[in-house]
Design a protein around this nucleic acid. Structure first.
Lengths: 342, 342
DNA sequence: TTGTAAGCGTTATCAC
DNA sequence: GTGATAACGCTTACAA
């Protein structure tokens, strides 16, 4: 295992000092080094296959140019697309992105905090942390952007989830639905609670009501979702005690329409179904899902905000801010008027 | 923005030398530092909120403890699960994972090579690189693990794709299919070509044949897939010129069964469909897909191999090797006997 | 125009 | 037991 060449090796070969090598290779030799010397240096660098040691460089600059993205589960298509967006944005700023999964172990908060404080990471974007998690990250809050969560102590990007709920409520109420079921994901993350809460509030304004909420136990796993969907259909849909079900996520909604098909509960004839996400699966199942589009562009937005935060000299003095991103309702075939308008 | 404390600050506060701080905090003070001094150091570290600078540490050790994972598209669920597996494995070894998308720009090879040679990255796992891409990575081949591709110059992990194709061929031939269609993804990656090639070869052994191959243009995008599936169904399935279609990926297969449902082509009554991946969607669509399971455990396997490679002192001397991972056929409802056995 | 030397924050080897 | 001191590979005043 041969040792990679250092700038000293290059200097030796070119017969100059190490600092001259640095000057030439970093293009700071404007009228300081003769073109001949510069050429000699460059030639030496090439023959030695020299590449500056990035770690040494980072130590010198006090910056890592690496940030973390923390999401609940990468396997969820929504987060995968967020990741791609964020990554693209970071790349443009010369940053790399490493991924954390907040779904698995719960030691991630301390690991993240340690990595940021030890300068391995310049900062992080954290998706929907719980209050406890956010609290654990307080010590690094000036290098953090929180998405869909957090107090005004933090830099935040927020989806207009409440407005999404309003759109759903209006859509369903407009179609004539009054008794609406809620298919909730089992998660401590505030964003889901907000979806449900807001929906209930807006439904009431339209004389509607959330009849019953059913949760899956597993976070967002298809098998668990189908099992729970079965229970839900048997309990509330078959007898018509609800005419529409709103789901915390497209995956749940997809499981629900699938189960309905198996039990001959017509969607949307007997039951309307609405999801959140506008993911690929929302167009894969039949009927295609009416769903709230959560833009993946939030990824780039959050990344831009983060890079801005960590690179500005005056992090500490700057007040945390809040960026709000609109969501839209995508009306597809899974929602329609209820069997009989009451 | 206050400067974070260094070991020198701690030393000053504790009234000892900087090296003593290092000794104590790195737990190398076995009978060298008095407990009282050690306690004083620890106290100082705590009050100063000291965290060792990881960049300096890496410079010293000549190791970054960061590796890259390169996949064609993270948004594809299969790769997402691979990522999760690989990440878990890396974490266990104290490594972080950064993600590259080889699907987007094609400058990634040089970027990756540069990052490895500049010691920002200890190494990388690269999924299904093309021959050109692999060639561009030759200079760092001792810190690379290639999955489903590459020559014997590289460390490789290979899925037994040929065997998967054999299983599919046997399954379909056993059911009585002879004329089989192929729904190919448009991709330069060798793994897809191998799937098709091998299937053809094995089908011939059973007096079968691939009647026609149809490609989608977009990589693996649902809309493109449905469009192409429509063409395929119209051309080859409606008139019964093929009785089964094998798809390069579950997403294609899912699109195909969906389109069939829309055109009243019974699956598997008139057309059997087989996919690759055993992804979540393979159980979401109806009928559920018969598919070749590609184990996500390949992710951990590849990561273990990589970490082994980059940490062993004698990288160069060690011969590149090949690990082969079995695949299995998961028989579900989308395949059955053809309308009439010929 | 070029080279010397002082950091950046660690770890580790030795004298004391 | 403890503390100088020399790396690690680079950037950048400043001296020559």
């Amino acid at each position: 295992m041969e040792r990679p060449a250092t700038s000293i090796d290059v200097a030796r070969m070119a017969g100059v000092s190490q600092s001259t090598v640095s000057l030439v290779l970093r293009r700071k030799d404007e009228g300081r080094v003769t073109p001949e010397t510069a050429a000699r240096v460059r030639a030496a660098a090439r023959t030695l296959d020299y590449e500056p040691n990035a770690v040494a460089l980072n130590l010198k600059r006090g910056r890592a140019d690496v940030v973390a993205l923390v999401v609940p589960t990468v396997t969820q298509p929504y987060f995968a697309s967020v990741l791609v967006e964020a990554e693209k944005e970071a790349r443009g700023a010369g940053c790399d992105v490493i991924l954390f999964d907040s779904g698995g172990d719960d030691g991630w908060t301390s690991r993240l905090a340690r990595m940021v404080r030890s300068r391995q990471l310049d900062g992080a974007i954290v998706w929907a942390p719980t209050d406890t998690e956010a609290a654990a990250l307080a010590s690094i809050r000036d290098r953090l952007v929180l998405v869909e969560a957090g107090s005004d102590q933090f830099n935040r990007i927020d989806l207009q989830i409440e407005h999404g709920a309003e759109l759903v409520a209006e859509h369903l109420a407009g179609l004539g639905h009054r008794r609406v079921g809620y298919f909730a994901v089992h998660s401590p993350r505030e964003t889901y609670l907000r979806r449900r809460q807001a929906l209930g509030d807006y439904l009431v304004k339209h004389n509607g009501v959330i009849v019953e909420a059913c949760s899956t136990e597993a976070a967002l796993d298809l098998d668990a979702a189908e099992l729970a969907a079965g229970t839900l259909v048997d309990a509330f849909a078959v007898d018509g005690s609800v005419t529409a079900v709103v789901c915390d996520d497209d995956l749940l909604a997809a499981a629900l329409v699938t189960v309905c098909a198996e039990r001959d509960v017509a969607v949307p004839g007997r039951l309307s179904v609405v999801g959140y996400g506008d993911l690929t699966i929302s167009r894969l199942v039949r009927p295609q899902l009416t769903t709230v589009n959560l833009p993946a562009a939030v990824g780039s937005l959050a990344m831009r905000r983060l890079i801005d935060a960590v690179r500005s000299r005056s992090r500490r003095t700057r007040k945390p801010d809040l960026i709000s991103v609109p969501v839209t309702l995508v009306e597809r075939a899974s929602s329609a008027a209820p069997p009989e308008v009451n």
